[in-house]
């Protein structure tokens, strides 16, 4: 091994200084990256807080409002049912997540732990559906919603097509596979039925993976744009993203109001993230890592 003598700091204080300099360097790097991350949010917030006398666009660009005001928020709140949009989003996300996780964890159990004819076929069929882009299903999905299920322009249109997820099934199957068979056998011997075993024995064990699937599904549902914008006509049913699009259309000329709307729409997700940060980061990333 080739050993190259590096200038070693001679004293403790020297070493200390080296650490201090290195830390400072990284804080500067991290700080600059943070600036890039928050600038769009900060600019939007600043625009939302500006009154009519404060120029939105000026040279040099003016980040801080001279006379900050909440008028824009009040005005947007009065003209659009943002609260309603929030409840709609919440309704859709709650039902989508609950039903999706239930259906997925039911389906994943036999795929992981039972032997039956056609298991491989079903497995590969599910795998194949992972490739199909959701966008591909929107045209027939639209026709189904209008002609067959009659749920066009209802919130169920956003829930029902999103209950099946091959992705979550695979994720949960992986979790079941790590549960020892002995545990299931013991429950059998105790006389428990499969449904009992699934619900009372297995679900508690795979709970972390269920949480992962739930967070992933919730964020996807909450931020969905294209499908909800196709399905919803009645303004009272808009979800937050669709409502924000409508808001932008309404206030085309008034950037201050659009900005205030955008800030209000961001807040619920931001609050959820701040409180359950770990779940979000582990969940969203864990989900795709499988």
């Amino acid at each position: 091994m080739r050993v190259i003598a590096k200038p070693v700091p001679s004293s403790r204080t020297g070493r200390h200084r080296a650490v201090w300099v290195s830390n400072l360097f990284w804080y500067v790097v991290l700080g600059l990256a943070s600036l890039v991350t928050i600038l769009p949010f900060l600019w939007t917030l600043s625009t939302a807080l500006k009154g009519p006398s404060d120029a939105i666009f000026s040279l040099p660009p003016q980040l801080l409002p001279r006379a900050p005001t909440l008028d824009n928020f009040v005005k947007v709140w009065g003209q659009l049912p943002i609260w309603r949009f929030f409840l709609n989003s919440l309704f859709v996300a709650t039902f989508t997540v609950t039903l999706n996780v239930l259906v997925s964890s039911l389906a994943a159990y036999p795929l992981a732990k039972m032997r039956f004819a056609g298991r491989d076929l079903i497995f590969y069929l599910l795998l194949a559906t992972l490739i199909v882009p959701a966008e591909l299903t929107y045209i027939p999905g639209y026709l189904l919603a209008v002609n067959v299920f009659n749920y066009y322009d209802t919130l169920w249109a956003l829930i029902l097509p999103n209950i099946f997820s091959a992705f979550n099934i695979f994720l949960l199957r992986q979790a079941y596979m790590s549960v020892p068979n002995d545990l299931i056998d013991a429950a059998h011997i105790d006389g428990a039925g499969e449904l009992r075993i699934w619900w009372s024995v297995l679900m508690p064990i795979i709970r972390p993976t269920v949480a992962t699937a739930a967070v992933f599904t919730a964020v996807t549902s909450w931020n969905a744009l294209l499908w909800p914008s196709l399905m919803l006509r009645n303004r009272e049913l808009y979800t937050l993203p669709v409502g924000l699009l409508a808001l932008r259309g309404m206030f085309t000329a008034d950037f201050r109001l659009i900005a205030a709307g955008a800030i209000m729409v961001i807040i619920p997700m931001l609050v959820a993230f701040l409180f359950a940060q770990r779940y979000f980061i582990n969940g969203l990333t864990g989900a795709v890592k499988g």
Binding site: A33, S34, T37, I38, P40, F41, W43, T44, V219, W222, N223, L225, L240, P241, L244, L245, R248, I258, A259, A262, I263, V265, I266, M269, L270, F273, Q277, F280, I281, L284
Partner: peptide, 15 residues
């Protein structure tokens, strides 16, 4: 750095 991931494309697009 994670916040943009969860924010949603409409609000970010507007920003």
């Amino acid at each position: 750095y994670y916040i943009p991931v969860i924010t949603g494309s409409v609000a970010i697009g507007i920003a």
